[in-house]
Design a protein around this nucleic acid. Structure first.
Lengths: 118, 118
DNA sequence: TCCTTAGTTCAAAAGTTATTGAACAATTGG
DNA sequence: CCAATTGTTCAATAACTTTTGAACTAAGGA
């Protein structure tokens, strides 16, 4: 582990809610949840935002304690901190993801604007 | 009903999360949840923020679809839109409120700074 | 009617967050 | 070593959010 992460008990509810309240970050979290166990690198999310902007949003998620980023080579392997989140805020992540999955208007990884309207 | 409210299906997940991501608004929602069924007026929340600022936060909650405000005389009776929220986002409100209740560091209605530290 | 109570609106200021491009580091493969 | 790949950092800007005080409206009671 390379970058600074909060410990599980430093994770703050309002910060997590505010961080998940951004559609780009919510899309990242949904995708991580859908690929649980598979560490992903940033390039997976390039259809959501520019590389620089993604770096910003991924840092927000990491600093909030929602994700964990591990440096491996030139990549960052990103995983959802599901265990920590479930322990701190039981049921929260599941209900957020289920609600997001039920909303076709939200941006999602691998679903370009074109694909949506076709 | 006097003021503009979104319909249940206009309620947006990211907006609700962002709105609940503010500690003052989270305290309002927790208090409304703890007094469910009892319509409250704004004065209940005056220990959280100034009257003007409260008006701003309560408008945010209403516009997001989290609360309903009804004008009765010079008062606004405020209630939580639990049915609508539970239908749109099952389990979300309960997990947020349970998580907030478990965090003594969060501001709460009727718990002044003095009372906390004494 | 006049005063009080309850809350809103407005404009300004302050603070925060999001987005961008250019420049930078670090690793890996040829 | 050189070039490509992967992602970060920085500074600037744009855009939004929060907070404030003063002025206002509308209802209710004396």
């Amino acid at each position: 582990m390379s970058l600074p992460h909060p410990t599980a008990d430093q994770i703050s509810l309002p910060i997590v809610l505010a961080v998940l309240g951004d559609p780009t970050r919510l899309a990242i979290v949904r995708y991580l949840a859908s690929k649980e166990g598979v560490p992903l690198n940033c390039s997976k999310f390039l259809d959501l935002a520019s590389k620089t902007n993604l770096s910003y949003h991924l840092a927000k998620l990491r600093e909030a304690g929602v994700t964990r980023s591990e440096a491996v080579g030139t990549s960052r392997l990103i995983t959802l901190r599901r265990d920590d989140l479930d322990r701190r805020f039981p049921g929260l992540l599941d209900s957020v993801i289920a609600a997001a999955d039920g909303d076709p208007a939200l941006p999602a990884v691998g679903v370009s604007e074109a694909e949506v309207s076709v």
